Simulated scan of single mutants.
Amino acid sequence: MWTAATTTTALALATAVTFFIWRAAQWFSSVDAESHFEASQHFLEDPNSFEKVPPPSIFAEATKSLSVVIPAYNEEDRLPVTLEDLTGYLSHRRDTKDANFTYEIIIVDDGSRDNTSGIAFDYVRKYSFEAVRVIRLSRNMGKGGAVKAGMMIARGRQLLMADADGATRISDLAKLEAVMHNVTDPGGAQSTRAFQQQSELGMVIGSRAHMQQAAVNKRAWHRNLLMRGFHLLVMMVIGDKIKDTQCGFKSLRSPYKNHANLKRWCFDVELIYLAQELHIPVREVDVEWREVPGSKIRVTSMINMAMELLAVLLGYKVFRRWLIKTEAEA
């Protein structure tokens, strides 16, 4: 029998569902609005001349062998060690192994409140504006937003994203490059030009999956529970072929460096999703990784990650607000 109490309950439930949908739509709209980045709105800064230098066009031909993009938010303590290791390794490679090897390091200060940009400018002065470049974002955009900003002004044929904490050894770049070579030129010198152009794109991910059991044993039970939930959501978006989506050590040769929409933690998952949709090969390589004090991941970060994975499903599959374009259409 339909009673007043039943009616009240039904109205309350309908109101709650309506409110949830409205809030979800508002939240997605805010994510969607934040997803647009225009490189022309930002400038490179040369501390030697105090000039603001317009960024290169995203459509320009590559003029460097490698671009390393480092997103940095309040990293004045950890950034110097990472830059020392990085510049030392890349300079040694150029000077002793490959005279034709050229590189640039792009440090993206993601609205830091400390001396991150000051540290970065010290390395511009030491190694030149041509080798080390700094872009400062006016506000904190999140790791994904900072990586995207760096990628859009990168001049390298190969792109490498690396965390500011130096948790992954830079020498493991050689592992990623070896796999990338096999992916993008499997036929070597015998490949036809048409096949080489078709297979020139690729993504190689540094992976800590081989260290998973040791990490599980060290983490608290609630963090392990949250991680299991996160991995389940990741599987819903990209499947189960990639075991570690969140390692900050990734190498790209791709046309979609300007397409990612997410700005926070799960932009990595979105990049893999885009690669799958564009039929770009993705490979995973074990790398050495160490825990570095100062991690910015909190329990609330896991919740935000889940919301961002939901945004990928809504943006690409449900609302279809985020369209996937090829390089020719970009």
Rank of each mutant, 00 (worst) to 15 (best):
T18G: 12
V69A: 05
L90N: 05
N100K: 08
S128Y: 08
R157H: 01
G206A: 12
W265I: 14
T168S: 09
M151C: 04
V17T: 15
A14Y: 07
S112Y: 12
A178E: 10
G187H: 07
V68Y: 05
N48T: 02
L11K: 10
M211K: 13
R139H: 15
A209L: 10
D46V: 08
V183E: 03
R228S: 03
L13E: 14
F101R: 12
E104G: 04
A220L: 12
S207Q: 05
N115L: 11
E34G: 02
S251I: 14
P186K: 05
A215V: 14
Y316E: 08
N304L: 11
G248T: 11
S91T: 15
S254E: 14
A328T: 15
G229A: 01
R136D: 12
R23M: 11
S301H: 00
F267Q: 03
F195T: 13
D95T: 15
G239Q: 07
R290L: 06
Y127L: 12
H279L: 07
S301R: 01
S171V: 12
D163T: 07
H222L: 03
K325G: 04
Y73W: 14
W265L: 14
K143N: 07
V312N: 00
A214W: 09
M180P: 01
Q276V: 09
R228C: 02
M307F: 08
K263D: 11
A189W: 07
R219Y: 02
S191Q: 08
P293T: 09
M161Q: 12
I324H: 04
N224K: 06
G202R: 05
D172P: 04
W322V: 04
R320F: 01
N74T: 10
M227I: 13
R125E: 14
T6A: 15
A149S: 10
R219K: 08
S138L: 06
A189Q: 10
I153M: 12
P56D: 00
Q41G: 09
D172R: 00
A311K: 06
L66N: 06
A330S: 06
S57A: 06
F19D: 13
R290H: 07
F20G: 10
V134W: 07
N261S: 12
T82C: 11
M302P: 02
I107E: 07
F37V: 15
D95R: 14
E130G: 03
